[in-house]
Design a protein around this nucleic acid. Sequence first.
DNA 1: CTGTTAGCGCCTTCAT
DNA 2: ATGAAGGCGCTAACAG
Lengths: 351, 351
Amino acid sequence: MNLHRNPSLTTLPVSPDLDTPAAVTVLDVARAAGVSPSTVSRILNGTARVAADKRAAVEAAIAKLNFRPNLFARSLKTGTTMTVGIVTQDVESPFYGRAMKGIEEGLSGSGYAPIIVSGHWNAKEEAERVELLMARRIDGLIILTGHLSDEQVRAFALHQPVVATGRQVDGPQLRSCQLDQEMGGYLATRHLINLGHRRIAHITGPQDHDDAQQRLAGYRRALQEAGLAADAALVVQGDFMESGGLMAMSRLIDSGESFTAVFAANDQSAYGARMALYRRGVRVPDDVSVVGFDDLPASAYLTPPLTTVRQPIYEVGLYAARTLLGLMGHPVEPITLPPMELVVRETTRRL
Amino acid sequence: MNLHRNPSLTTLPVSPDLDTPAAVTVLDVARAAGVSPSTVSRILNGTARVAADKRAAVEAAIAKLNFRPNLFARSLKTGTTMTVGIVTQDVESPFYGRAMKGIEEGLSGSGYAPIIVSGHWNAKEEAERVELLMARRIDGLIILTGHLSDEQVRAFALHQPVVATGRQVDGPQLRSCQLDQEMGGYLATRHLINLGHRRIAHITGPQDHDDAQQRLAGYRRALQEAGLAADAALVVQGDFMESGGLMAMSRLIDSGESFTAVFAANDQSAYGARMALYRRGVRVPDDVSVVGFDDLPASAYLTPPLTTVRQPIYEVGLYAARTLLGLMGHPVEPITLPPMELVVRETTRRL
DNA sequence: CTGTTAGCGCCTTCAT
DNA sequence: ATGAAGGCGCTAACAG
């Protein structure tokens, strides 16, 4: 269904005349203040010097009439919309929620309003949403990871400034940032190895998810570096969700493989894995050590609190917002992203 | 800082001419198709019948030129913006995240895009954000609970249709919905009573939060109905966050009051309380039973899984979106909200 | 069925 | 320092 501008769809009993009580325009203000519209505009935008008395009159009129400039008329004229598009993957994701918060903070006070769409980890849907955003003439675009190809992202950057996270693409109007996922995976696994673990399982993320592949690579590197064999039977497929982690761990236990530790590709998987362990009466960390990835707010409140790799995702959001402001022509203090960091809590123990 | 339209702030090295490659307009399309702009407009909006050959020519031209109508020009003309404002309290909240998802779903395919702002549980900030939204001439507004007074909400509804959750206000352009929080609190407490508990503590939400007060009222009603004294020493102040729950439970334990169960005003508080219990070596549910409120996605993955009251918050989002579409003149199938529901998992036991 | 005309509200030369 | 005039891209009468 597309309700968009279909006049036949006007039905509900809505009092017709209550909306927008005859919007007041620059012209109204000008008349009330006894000046021309141009003068009002100049005061609004600080475009030129205006005599103090007229300025006062205009400001009084603005206040009295409660005038609000129509952003759309302005946009039409200036070509700028004061709106930035944000592509997230899932409005409900606690991880991207934190990135959103960083973006919100980074944009605050800039006059730019974010409009958010979700790609749901689907390249096609994601591209459609971006088209939708672009139809609204956004001034800038932030793409939070996702499945778009670098070429697509580059193509989008032809139309407006773009900041993309979780990838390495740059161009005239294109900036990106990427956290070292491989290092994160390495850190997590290395921690387990240092604790004396030798049989370390891994619950992966989705196969088509680049970050997940990187974490897996880090896991393998740590293993190899320690001279440990990479046992394929110890790597089980998850999906970044609690249910996937639960099933992965259940399968692993059922397989009969022995292991003393597991590194889950994200915290949500770790929650699921921990539940599977709990269901089987396997104690954490006494029998099995668990390491997650992301450091979600809830992870510190698991019992026992989850050892995990902290991604500075809030800062990524901040960085994306600030960088975009820069691309849009506003000077900003640069942000440097803190590195991945191992947060040792209580789900791991020395063997 | 307000970067908005301050020409002095143009600095960063951005290639100047890459943006919006000379936007194509209806006029271009009309010329390419050998018709008038009005005909193009009519085809775009289905406003009138157009001869098949011209339609084909226009559609071909649109495709060839990759034409996208400028929504702002359209808005200027029609007074409609095809965007709705959403006031949430915290983009990072897992609870409101789920509501957002419902709204997203409810709006999908309608042509309306949501633009989201956060009030951060602060009436003043909330009002400011709404003003900001209104400056953008949104076609409709959804207010997710928050601290605005009913009068303020009513005032906003003078300018455009409004749907507000967590309160009971209605008017010509105003709809609201309210879940029975008191009943939820009653259900949670009643469950504990039925299990044989007599000394039941409560961790409250913020004092200025209406929902929290309602849940407390439900707690008291269940107690009273069962002939149990409401011991003020058993009611401790939380703040709907994990840390608040943790501190509240710590204080309770330190107070030396005896209790066998606790009802936390939301799941996040329950997580914190559970952690405090864990720190003191108090077993759940063996020594103390715990009930939460909300049923966050993570709650099923606590160890043990959390017994809680499920709020149909996703459906609330859906309801808000659909109702708003209705107010904006689009017929929608009405949604009925499911009731609050006790979800018994494993943090409560019979005494 | 289709083209012509006239703005929507604002900003920006261009004069003064 | 200020006003008049034109136009951003689109749609909605009004003619034909």
